[in-house]
Amino acid sequence: MGPIGFSGGGWGSSWVGGYGGYSGWGAPGYNVQTNPIGRVKIEGDVNFSGQINEADAAMGNEPKRNPYGLTVGAGEMTKLIMTCQPNAYRQRQVGEPKVRMDFYKLVTGLEIKGVNLGDKKGRFQNFEQETATCGRILVWMDSTRRQLLLDSADPSRRRVEWLWSATVPPERIFVEGVRPTNPGGAFIVTYELDDSNKKGISKWFGEPAVWDRQLITVGQVKVPKPKIDRTPTWTTVSGK
């Protein structure tokens, strides 16, 4: 895995040492993360309108990466639209046509991790503390919940990868809230494109990974959609 990911307006580190530590998980940047290796994006209904569209993208990264992020009720499931596009402009279109592609070394990874909002690197003392604080989410390939991709409460099911030499990553995933998140905790879903499938000495000359992230909190109850504040701006108080 590449050690650094360029994040639009800032640099954001990938997973680094220490239990549960995310260094740079709140790095600034645009909604679409780009660098020479490709383009990665996560889109969710961050404005709780009931749709994933341009209005969510216009809100930028703030509702994606600040607490509470995307709130999913316990017993509720939401869709995330995933974009991962290797840079096609690196396949030369001038001169004699040749087959020169990077798919043999490209890997797309999807990872979930609980984060401690009270720690600079998001660390918990142990896995038990993380699950007690953050609750539990499941990530499914389809809305019928037939193919489970990730389980935040299972250490062996916290990351999944797609090798571009064999397949392509899904265009959408579905996140299910199972157990509510307690104050001080949250989940981060990270979507990453890297050249980590390179072998031997060639790994030393790998490129920075590119990624996008979505903060997720599990609520006690579902959030009404569309989420509209219907209270009046001005009102008269009796007896005043």
Rank of each mutant, 00 (worst) to 15 (best):
L70S: 00
V72R: 01
V72M: 04
E76A: 09
M77I: 09
M77E: 07
T78V: 14
K79A: 06
L80D: 02
M82S: 04
T83S: 08
T83Y: 05
Q85T: 15
Q85I: 14
Q85F: 12
R90V: 09
R90K: 13
Q91T: 12
V94T: 13
V94C: 09
K98T: 14
M101H: 12
D102S: 13
F103A: 14
K105W: 11
V107W: 04
V107P: 00
L110Y: 03
E111N: 13
E111R: 13
E111K: 12
E111A: 13
I112S: 01
N116K: 03
G118Q: 07
D119E: 11
K121M: 15
N126M: 08
E128V: 08
E128P: 02
Q129L: 10
Q129F: 07
Q129R: 10
A132W: 01
A132Q: 08
T133I: 08
I137N: 01
V139W: 01
D142A: 08
R145M: 10
R146S: 15
R146V: 10
Q147Y: 12
A153Y: 03
A153L: 05
A153C: 08
D154S: 09
A166Q: 15
A166F: 11
A166Y: 11
V168T: 14
V168F: 14
V168A: 14
E171M: 14
R172I: 09
F174D: 00
F174S: 02
E176D: 07
G177I: 01
N182V: 11
P183V: 07
A186V: 03
F187T: 00
I188T: 02
V189T: 07
T190A: 10
T190C: 09
Y191N: 03
L193W: 00
D195N: 07
S196G: 11
K203M: 10
G206P: 03
E207I: 07
